[in-house]
Every structure is written in C-alpha cells, then in structure tokens.
Amino acid sequence: MDLVNVNINTAGYSGNKSVIKNVALSISPGDMVGLIGPNGAGKSTIIKAITGLLPVLDGNVEFGGVCKNYAYIPEQPVLYEGLTLWEHLEFAAAVYEIDRGIFINRAEELLRLFRLAHVKHNLPTTFSKGMQQKVMLILGFLLKPSLYVIDEPFIGLDPIGIKDFLFIIQQARSEGSGVLLSTHSLDTAEKICTSFVLINEGTVLTKGSLWEIREQSQLPNGSLFDCFIKLLENSI
C-alpha cells in the first residue's frame, strides 16, 4: 500500500492563478522519490500541497493506512530564538508525545550522529547555516515517521554532514519509511533515489526510474542531468 497518493488538478496561492497543474505521484514504503526541477518550477509548491500548507488546491492528497505520520524538513531552518538545541528537541518530543526514555535515547543518538552533542545547550540561532540544517534534520528524524518530505537537504551541509544524512535516511528506508526529496543535486539524486519526478513550469515532464527516464529521453546511457536537460529543451 502507498504511503501517499498525490493527484493535483490545479493548485496555487491566491486568486485564479495556478502555480502547479496535473501533478500525480505516489510514494511507497522504502521508496526515495527525487523531485527534480529548475528554480521556480513548482517543487516547493508541490511539497506545500502535500503537507497541507497550500491555501488553494483542486485535487487530492491521500495518505495510506500504513502512513501513521510524516515529517516535513524545509529548506530554510525554522528555529525559536529563545530555545537551546536541547529545548527544541524537548519541545518537539512533547508535541509528538514521545515517551521520555525513548526521546532521550533517540535525541542523544541523533546529536552524536550529526556531531552536535557538544552544543546541545547552545542557541541554534547562533549556529552556521550547515549546523542549523542539521538541527532541522535531527528534529525530523526524532519522530521516526512513515514518510519524510525533505526540501533541499544538501544546501549548507559539508561532505561529512551529507554522509551522515545519507546514512540515516537509508536506515529509515530499510525500516519501511518513504522519502520525497526535492533537490538540485542531480548527481547525488541519481545515486540514491529509486525514482524521479521531473517538473517544469508547474507540471510533470516525466516520472519513473532512471532507466525509464533514459528511455523517454532517448539517452540510453545518459546521466539524470543529461536526460533532464534534454527533456527540458524538448518541452520548450
């Protein structure tokens, strides 16, 4: 059973102007679906539609029975000025109603993994962009949801941070979680994603596995980048 099925006729922000149209995708347990497109293509709008943050939507976003919850990790960190890193984690645990013992073990493990244990009592608003991104990842992974919706996780992360992220997201997938990953890092996406949704100007250019996208772009040995550029050029 799919974790989520998305069928959007039109969606946007206000008035009659549609930002995205005719968008359909699904995510199953263990999937990592790469949402690929240029700036302004509608990736973030699709994510907002899935997470219920879009005011205007004609269509359906249906979560399957096996999807108990989801975590949304935005591109721009959202942090409280007066809370330390540990207090952010405690607040999230209270909202998610995570058992205290489970929370402490999980939080400490994530802080060690992302190498932030030494600053857990500091204010994240004073951290670097990369460290703030790690805080958002820790908050997302704290819940251990069925579905992760992640917007541009690689921005600001150093190579070690990327390695740590890829390790834990692979672990989550092996436990049955699905992932929707919006990214401009096509080389990385090609290596880690099970399928792709390529979009431009608010609609889907094509979707499928790398093999299927190579077939559709008529580039049997092409990289994801090459296939995307060719499909993009053909759509103009």
Rank of each mutant, 00 (worst) to 15 (best):
K68P: 12
L35H: 07
K120S: 13
N105R: 15
R100A: 15
S44R: 02
L137S: 04
P55S: 15
V23L: 11
S146D: 07
L210A: 04
I36E: 03
G15I: 15
Y72I: 10
L137N: 01
G12W: 01
S177Y: 03
A117Q: 14
T206L: 10
K43Y: 01
T206F: 14
L3P: 08
F114S: 09
L147S: 06
E233D: 02
N7F: 13
V19L: 15
S185M: 02
D31P: 14
I138N: 09
G12S: 12
A93P: 07
I199G: 05
R100V: 14
A71M: 06
T51F: 04
K21M: 11
I104M: 10
I162R: 08
I73S: 09
Y13T: 08
G208N: 13
E212P: 02
T84R: 06
V204Q: 05
Q76G: 04
L219I: 03
D187G: 00
K68Y: 14
H121P: 03
I138F: 07
P159G: 06
F165T: 03
T206I: 11
L116P: 15
T126Q: 14
L89H: 14
R106W: 11
N221W: 01
L83I: 07
P74C: 12
S235W: 01
L85I: 13
T206A: 15
E152G: 08
E87P: 05
F167I: 02
S146G: 15
V66P: 09
K230Q: 04
K134M: 12
C227Q: 00
A24C: 15
L231Y: 00
L142W: 08
S128L: 13
R112M: 10
F141H: 10
S195C: 07
Q170S: 11
K120A: 08
P77W: 08
I229E: 01
W86Y: 08
L137K: 04
N122F: 13
S185H: 03
I27S: 13
G140C: 08
S182Q: 01
L157E: 04
G130H: 10
T51R: 06
L123Q: 03
Q218C: 07
K68V: 15
G208L: 07
N69R: 14
Q132T: 05
G30T: 09
G34F: 11
P159R: 05
L116R: 13
D2G: 04
D58I: 05
A92L: 11
G82T: 06
N16C: 13
P77D: 13
I8E: 04
G40C: 10
D58A: 08
G40P: 05
S182A: 09
A117K: 13
G222Q: 00
T188F: 01
V119S: 06
F141P: 04
K134G: 12
G30N: 09
L205N: 05
G64Q: 14
D151W: 11
T126N: 12
K129E: 07
I229G: 00
L224I: 00
I169S: 08
L166W: 02
I47E: 04
S223Q: 00
E81S: 11
S223M: 00
L25F: 10
K230G: 00
